[in-house]
């Protein structure tokens, strides 16, 4: 996948658990897992905004472009 999700790294830096984040941003842990594993096809701006707000970070900290597939 060309777009990598670095949610795990940010979560580890903030010492926050996945279910805690899921609860804060109002999505299910299953959906958060889909996002973390890179299975998601798209992400809503509202979800991205909620994640950035909860983790106090920028979208670029979560998403990363890689040339390798």
């Amino acid at each position: 996948m060309a777009i990598l999700i670095n949610l795990d790294v940010i979560l580890a830096k903030r010492e926050m658990k996945s279910n805690e984040l899921a609860e804060k941003i109002g999505i299910t842990t299953a959906n958060l897992s889909i996002l973390k594993t890179g299975k998601a096809k798209a992400i809503r701006f509202s979800t991205l905004e909620a994640i950035c707000e909860a983790l106090d970070c920028q979208p670029g900290d979560i998403l990363e472009y890689s040339e390798e597939n």
């Binding site: 999505i27 959906n31 958060l32 889909i34 996002l35 299975k39 998601a40 096809k41 798209a42 992400i43 809503r44 979800t47």
Partner: peptide, 8 residues
């Protein structure tokens, strides 16, 4: 549907 389901 897949695309919609996998949009978080």
């Amino acid at each position: 549907k897949q695309e919609n389901d996998l949009t978080i």
